[in-house]
């Protein structure tokens, strides 16, 4: 278990957060987001609309798990308390996860998944593009590797956005509804706090306001190609930076963490 209580500011009221503390948090954000997306995409296995697409969807999952392992391992190294990727993945509670609110949204139907992935892929694409220049070598290397994967993911989800938007009346309506329903979780992608402040100063992290501009361009362009409407920016959900999530995350974790929790003394 993490010793730091999972409260706002990490319960460190008055204490100044060190760069290392901030970097650990940042790694958990990136790692958790990939982990949860990986877990969601794995749920598609044997449920795809065609065999080819089934394989494509689980390929995305494997990429995400790979990214998660790198970032969670790095968090453990930075922390220096001997924690492994698995300790982070399987032995933290709901309020200690920092994945984006969008990443945990349930798969729903194929269109819901494509919409969620598309909005998220566009974010990660621009984020990792920028983070390739991070002053932290591991983050930079991780981003250089991940950008290749995410470029492909964005291409996959964008093409499906266009097919579903331009396909049948039914598919057009469905994918428009998916985008509308997910829109309120997109604000959380760009939320920043003390962690970002510290790391931006150090040249390790990037200002998410800049990412937002690029994200807007990509999203607008693909929505246009897909003949879909961009929803109004109404009230946005927030909370991932404080580990405040939707109910669905608890269920995902309960399932994912079952074995290591049930047999704490066992190795696998």
């Amino acid at each position: 278990m993490l010793e730091t209580p999972p409260l706002a500011n990490g319960g460190r009221e008055g204490l100044k957060m060190t760069t290392k503390d901030a970097l650990i948090k940042y790694c958990l954000r990136l790692g958790d987001t990939s982990l949860i997306l990986g877990q969601r995409m794995a749920e598609w296995c044997s449920n795809g609309p065609t065999l080819e697409e089934d394989i494509a969807l689980t390929n995305l999952s494997l990429d995400f798990f790979g990214q998660a392992r790198t970032m969670l391992s790095y968090a453990g190294e930075l922390e220096g308390k001997g924690k492994s990727e698995d300790d982070f993945a399987f032995k933290r509670n709901e309020r200690e996860f920092y994945n984006t609110l969008l990443s945990e949204r349930p798969n729903g139907h194929f269109g819901d998944t494509i919409a969620r992935n598309f909005l998220h892929d566009a974010f990660l694409y621009h984020l990792y593009s920028a983070l390739r220049n991070s002053k932290d070598e591991i983050i930079a290397a991780h981003s250089a590797k991940s950008i290749k994967e995410v470029t492909y993911h964005l291409r996959h989800s964008s093409e499906w956005m266009v097919r579903l938007g331009g396909g049948t009346e039914e598919s057009h309506q469905k994918i428009q509804d998916s985008i509308n329903d997910l829109w309120m979780f997109t604000g959380d992608l760009f939320a920043m706090n003390e962690v970002d402040e510290i790391l931006i100063k150090e040249g390790i992290a990037v200002n998410l306001k800049d990412i937002k501009k690029n994200w807007d361009n990509t999203v607008n362009e693909v929505l246009h190609r897909a003949t879909l409407q961009r929803p109004e920016d109404a009230y946005m959900q927030s909370g991932s930076l404080e580990g405040r999530h939707a109910e669905c995350l608890g269920h995902l974790l309960a399932e994912m963490q079952f074995l290591p929790r049930a047999y704490p003394e066992a190795t696998w």
């Binding site: 449920n47 795809g48 609309p49 065609t50 697409e53 139907h109 194929f110 269109g111 097919r163 579903l164 396909g167 049948t168 039914e170 598919s171 469905k174």
Partner: peptide
């Protein structure tokens, strides 16, 4: 459940 997706494509 994949029918509408295949038809759309």
């Amino acid at each position: 459940e994949g029918k509408w997706v295949r038809e759309a494509a």
